[in-house]
Amino acid sequence: MTRIDSLFARLKTEGRAAMVAYITGGDPTLAASAKISVALEHAGVDILELGIPFSDPLADGATIQAAAGRALASGASVSGILELIREIRKTCEIPIVLFAYLNPVYTYGFSKFQADARAAGADGILLLDLPPSEANQNKELASLSGLQTIRLIAPTTPADRLKEITDVAEGFIYYVSREGVTGEQSSLSTDIADRVAAIRALTQVPVAVGFGISNPDQAATVAALADGVVVGSAIVRKIGEIGDAPDLPEKIADFVRPIAEAVHGVKR
């Protein structure tokens, strides 16, 4: 059983949702990302989403765009991210899902990347701009067994493609809770429950909800509806504000802990 699958199996018996935290690898440096990752696990994070920085992150809002800029400026490369995973794995066993745009992975070599990421200790990959239809039609982009492929579902995804995506889903499904790019929101969409129910009607694969969740109240609301709660931009914004300071990992852990507690406090 993969790390991701056993995590969700365990959480199911415990009756709680997963706290999923996103950071951009190499923001502000690869060394800091390693320390932040370990601190996040101690703060209660169940799954680490690790972004591979890309020069043109068109699905991301200003916050994560800026993080990618910082990471690239500090010299983060694809092989640097693989090294980062190895570093995290020295002390940390939580599932790691890579969050990536296709071009850096494609340039590295699609199947070589999956093998190397797997060997480094990654568990899953979410390729933002590789929809299932393209993966099916490009032999060189066909998924290998190395990593579990995490798929996005959007509020606009119609029934026919909902089926297409859930048919190939593994690990968990990432439901994007609103139309737009990544970023914090003051209020959550009202139809999350309905959409999650529609996905669950088609698959047993757990559903995590993200895009716009930034505080413990919102996290608790979503934890009651879904199998996982993804918090990204709020953490990344904090990292940007604090910068490459010695107490950065500790401060990020302090920020995330109450959100993780809110997620775990919801009995399901």
């Binding site: 933002l128 929809p131 239809s133 393209e134 039609q137 959007a154 493609r161 139309e179």
Partner: peptide, 20 residues
């Protein structure tokens, strides 16, 4: 029908744009 010009082109976008 999928927008491929031989090995080029296609529809490499996030799910959030697919329906549009």
């Amino acid at each position: 029908s999928h927008g491929h010009f031989g090995p080029y082109g296609g529809r490499f976008v996030p799910e959030t744009l697919m329906t549009a």
